[in-house]
């Protein structure tokens, strides 16, 4: 449905998108993960048609996305900003924003009622938006992007600054929209959100995709072993000696220093046996940390930095 090839955009010397390429199928929900400055918002802005002066191609069902203005009727945008009129009520906002798309006048009101019901704002339709809570405003922001039933929905950090209940509600909406056949690109900082919502995840940094795939595919990049960190009162040599005959495919000694060691364990059932062996050798253990593989690990491995850096 959507094909992006070698998209490059620079702001002066800063390269925001660097030969960025991506394919998106109908009904696919793609989570775009990346730290601040990774190029996520630049990508969404280009796809939304609000940024110019880039190179590369973007085609939507084989047509140049930017050559035909009517294609905008098939794209829905949920920007990071709460972009609507606070002094109008929810219904008037929907009628105005929906009116800017080519939604037939007769359908617009009915569609607005439906979408308010979907985002659980039907009871507040006639209330000025300035009275809404942050979560309600986010839901209205999402509703405006969905009003004209887009085939491609772009959401730029739609869950920023809202409570858990509102976040769950918005993620449910995104999942349902994807299930109904809309292709979705959804940028976020939140690993848990993409794990539970997206059918595909792309990790990007410095304007490029570093890795992409389903959650399981990405986990395989770092392997599926638990990382065990052991702190205590021991010498590095004594620690290595104690575990010498256990080292192999299941237990790998990643690093050993005096009083601190790190192991990779493919079967978590092996961890108690490792601890027994250390006690038998009278090595004092004061702290034990087990890190199961997740997107944070993947992200750390791919970018060398934490997602929130």
């Amino acid at each position: 449905m959507l094909e992006i090839k070698n998209l490059t955009k620079s702001y002066g010397d800063v390269v925001a998108l660097d030969r960025f390429s991506l394919d998106l199928k109908k009904g696919e929900v793609l989570g775009l993960l990346g730290p601040n400055g990774a190029g996520k918002t630049t990508l969404i802005s280009i796809l939304a048609g609000t940024l110019r002066d880039f190179t590369g191609t973007v085609t939507f069902e084989g047509r140049n996305l930017f050559s035909d203005r009517t294609l905008k009727n098939r794209i829905g945008i949920v920007p990071q900003d709460m972009a609507f009129y606070d002094d109008l009520n929810a219904m008037d906002n929907l009628l105005f924003w929906g009116g800017l798309y080519d939604v037939p006048r007769a359908d617009l009101k009915r569609r607005a009622v439906e979408i308010l019901d979907l985002v659980e704002l039907a009871g507040r339709a006639k209330e000025p938006v300035k009275n809404f809570s942050g979560g309600m405003k986010r839901r209205l922001n999402t509703a405006i992007g969905l009003l004209h039933k887009p085939d491609l929905l772009l959401l730029d950090e739609p869950t920023v600054g809202i409570d858990v209940q509102a976040k769950v509600s918005i993620l449910d909406i995104i999942r349902n929209v994807g299930a109904a056949g809309t292709a979705v690109i959804f940028t976020t900082h939140q690993l848990a959100e993409v794990e539970t919502t997206c059918s595909r995840i792309a990790i990007m940094d410095h304007g490029r995709i570093l890795a992409q795939g389903t959650f399981d595919e990405l986990i395989r990049i770092v392997g599926e072993r638990d990382i065990v960190e052991i702190a205590g009162d021991f010498a590095a040599g004594a620690f290595s000696e104690a575990l010498r005959d256990m080292a192999g495919a299941d237990v790998e000694l990643l690093s050993v220093a005096d009083n601190l060691a790190s192991l990779a364990v493919s079967d978590s059932g092996r961890i108690p046996r490792v601890m027994d062996r250390l006690f038998q050798n009278k090595l004092a253990v004061t702290d034990l940390k087990i890190q199961t593989p997740g997107l944070e690990t993947v992200f750390l491995k791919l970018t060398g930095r934490s997602l929130r850096d």
Partner: peptide, 14 residues
């Protein structure tokens, strides 16, 4: 300033 113009320009409006 508050992003409404950008949002308008994502619609077919010129």
């Amino acid at each position: 300033e508050d992003g409404k113009l950008r949002r308008m320009l994502t619609t077919p409006v010129r």
